[in-house]
Design a protein around this nucleic acid. Structure first.
Lengths: 252, 252
DNA sequence: GTTTGTCGGGACGCTACCGCACCTAACGTT
DNA sequence: AACGTTAGGTGCGGTAGCGTCCCGACAAAC
């Protein structure tokens, strides 16, 4: 057969599930069901499987290719959040319930893969409970936070990271004060205490916060949001989208 | 009532589900079921909710506290992977299917929270299909990779990160060669191309790899593993644990 | 009222990495 | 054979954050 030719080929009888570990671990019943719609596709270098924020049309199971989950920053610089190869699936947001992610998936090493239509994937999960979907959505938000942290660690100044951290903490507390020594913040951010001292000092001089002996008061929240990097907004937006507060929007 | 006293109190009729967003979004049936076993607990600063690798006894729903998911490195340095407050749950590995994570959960801001016994949580999910559990386990492995990336970005040299990246890529391909320009690797790692050139050069001089015009051959895999930071092993181990290859171990 | 510990502030040299500019070598094209 | 393109190598000044050590201010303990 023409399994070696480059063009997209609809499933053949010779589809080998062992080429992707996830598919290999699938129960037989599911495998048989999916078989009908699984198709082999070529995945050339640089192909964008999905764009940040866009809804997925398919999920991909790489077999001989590697896909990078990239976060592309506003200034165009990018950083890899994770790689997916023949051990996994590209498009977890589809079954996690979010439908999209703030990252981009790009083929990083040309090869082949199998893909499945989005609706097919979703159907598998619609059989399951509400609780599940809720928790999965939460998990996706959490993942976003992690990913953004990785990016932020790589690219942003301590000053901006401190702002982000203060804002994220503030969002999880009531009021505008947090009890937190600079030493502790340094541990959280993975930097020196002196670095935090310096950054905090400049925030204080800018009139954004005030602090003394382990108490930090946020005086100008908007100012912090202006000063921080994009990472804060990305995470916040994603949490809001995935987990709308009950009083605000109806749960989708 | 003594809701303000510090000691652990078993659930009272006045338990307010709105104090934690996840609980608030719970369907009524589940909420009623959980109510019987949910208990309010004090969460003092510094309390370790779970240690890296340990099995959870409870999941926690912070209400007025903040919990840090910390990754503690071999040399004792630590970095925050994510924070969890009244919007979430501490212990996702319980329903993700992994049972534990390589990170530690520490109370970062004292307060209160609700907790639920591990078995109770699990029971909610055991009603659901195999596919689900498989995918969730995969997701947890992915999350580990993200978290580790964040840590690695913060703390390790470009040289080490390059080793990690090569190894992770190699694991997802067959053979010992990858087609990849230094330019591309630089984009993935979020660093300058020249930095990669320098690091790659030193790896080549050490006899670990050889490369020319976008082809990288790994000559000494063990050498790379020796040279890289702990991040690679952590991620690999977690993938192996969560997604054992069918021919090797039985799926747990 | 002194001591001891905690918290914040500052100085020093050092290293890793950045930004930029430029160069060489290999290869493909025509 | 000439040319342009792509991959890799080098040099140089700049800087963010590190390791270390030291200091002052305040607070609780004795």
């Amino acid at each position: 057969m023409s399994l070696e030719t480059p063009q997209t080929s609809v499933n053949t009888a010779s589809l080998d599930r062992r080429t992707n570990h996830l598919l290999a671990a699938l129960p037989d019943a599911e495998w048989q069901r999916w078989l009908a719609t699984l198709e082999t596709v070529d995945m050339p270098l640089g192909q964008v499987l999905y764009e940040s924020g866009k809804t997925l049309t398919h999920v991909y199971f790489p077999t001989t290719s590697i896909v990078s989950l990239l976060y592309v920053m506003e200034n165009g610089a990018s950083a890899e959040i994770a790689v997916v190869g023949n051990e996994g699936i590209v498009g977890i947001s589809l079954f996690m319930g979010g439908g999209s992610t703030p990252s981009r998936a790009v083929v990083q090493s040309a090869g082949r893969g199998l893909r499945l239509e989005a609706q097919m994937m979703k159907d598998e999960f619609d059989k399951n409970g509400l609780v599940l979907h809720l928790l999965l959505r939460y998990t996706q938000a959490l993942i976003t936070q992690m990913a953004q942290t990785a990016v932020c660690n790589r690219h942003h100044s301590l000053d901006q990271q401190l702002c982000r951290w203060l804002l994220l903490s503030l969002d999880r507390l009531q009021g505008h004060e947090l009890v937190m020594t600079q030493e502790l913040i340094a541990n959280m951010l993975g930097v020196r205490r002196e670095g935090v001292t310096e950054a905090a000092l400049s925030l204080q001089q800018a009139g954004l916060i005030r602090y003394a002996r382990g108490r930090i008061s946020v005086l100008d929240r908007a100012g912090l949001e202006k000063r921080t990097c994009e990472c804060y907004a990305v995470v916040k937006k994603e949490y809001d989208r995935l987990l709308p507060t009950d009083h605000a929007t109806a749960a989708g």
